[in-house]
Computed example of a mutant assay.
Amino acid sequence: MSIPDRPFASYHLWSLVAPATGQERWHCQMRRGFVKARQHEPKVKALLATATAPQRIGILAQKGVYEFHHHRHLLSQTDGVEKVAQLLKLSHSSEEVQQRVLQILTKYHNEPLLLNKRIIQLTPGDEGFPKPILIDQDDYCFRLYAAMDCVFIDSDRTLHILDFKTGKAAFDQRQALVYLLAARYLYPEQEAVASFYNLELCKKSDLIHITHQELLSLEFELAHIARKHQQDLQKYHQQTQDFSKIFPPNPGSHCRYCPFRSICDFADNPKLKSQSMPILRVNG
């Protein structure tokens, strides 16, 4: 398997390398190994291609918002929710997914957050990897990937990056920070803010701002993450038998929620807890 010529970073990689504050206990580096180093192996590839119910709900909810604004007349039609459900082929999903997505569509139809907004970008959520942003400084160079759900212009002409969520998980501000860094390159003349909106709970986050100095620090931090991950990939491809040393496990009760439990030799084995290496902590 070939290794990318240039290191890369993204919020997803950041979350795999370092846990969010308060999530250290459940963080497992081996998951990063499966996702980023062994993703082309048949068994791993099959697991990655199988969306869980929460993932399916998130994808369909995002696509539902996209369809409402792609076919704006549906926002004012009484059967708009039903029409969008048909566009999503929602009947092909499980009962749980159908019920929760229909509730999300109904709530959005009743109170469309983006109505009358000057939308610059609104993605359906299944478009794949975005075009990378090349960040090239004197002492580091890496590709930044930032898949933004929605970008619009606020009434005060501020660029607003909005990320949609579902479920009950807390917002991870690091994701918004990565988007703000990307905006610095994509929209250099625009003042930018970011926020989250939970489509299921109809809950908004506070607006997230970042100073120029904080952007520089963030860029350096992501460069560090990109280099570390690239080094780990190189180690693994040189010594594949050292997989569990390069991407150490952190087994425990949280293994029951891991998509790789069926192929992981370390899943939920308390005896191995003492063998797992320290978690890398990254500021932010």
Rank of each mutant, 00 (worst) to 15 (best):
Q99W: 04
H160C: 15
S91E: 15
A146N: 04
T123Q: 09
P7Q: 02
M1Q: 11
L199W: 01
R25G: 05
K273D: 11
I119R: 04
E24I: 08
D268T: 00
Q98C: 10
H254E: 13
A61P: 00
N250Q: 08
L159D: 11
H73C: 10
A20P: 00
G22D: 03
D138L: 09
T106A: 15
K245C: 12
D206T: 10
K89C: 10
I104D: 07
L201P: 00
V17F: 09
V44H: 08
T158Y: 05
S217I: 09
A53W: 05
E191S: 13
P130N: 06
Q175M: 10
G64Y: 01
P249G: 04
S244M: 13
P4Q: 09
K107N: 14
S91A: 13
K245R: 14
R143A: 10
D172H: 13
F142T: 02
Q29D: 14
E189W: 05
V101W: 07
H237T: 08
P248N: 02
F164W: 09
P7G: 02
K36F: 13
V44T: 15
E221Q: 14
R184M: 06
F164V: 07
F8R: 04
C264Y: 05
R281D: 12
T78E: 15
H160M: 15
A61T: 00
K165R: 10
D79A: 15
Y108I: 05
V65Q: 04
D232N: 14
T123M: 08
A20I: 00
S195C: 07
A194H: 05
D126S: 09
V35N: 09
S274W: 04
Q213N: 11
W14C: 02
T158V: 13
L159S: 10
V84Q: 01
A223L: 07
Y140W: 08
S195D: 08
M277Q: 15
A9W: 01
E95D: 12
I153K: 10
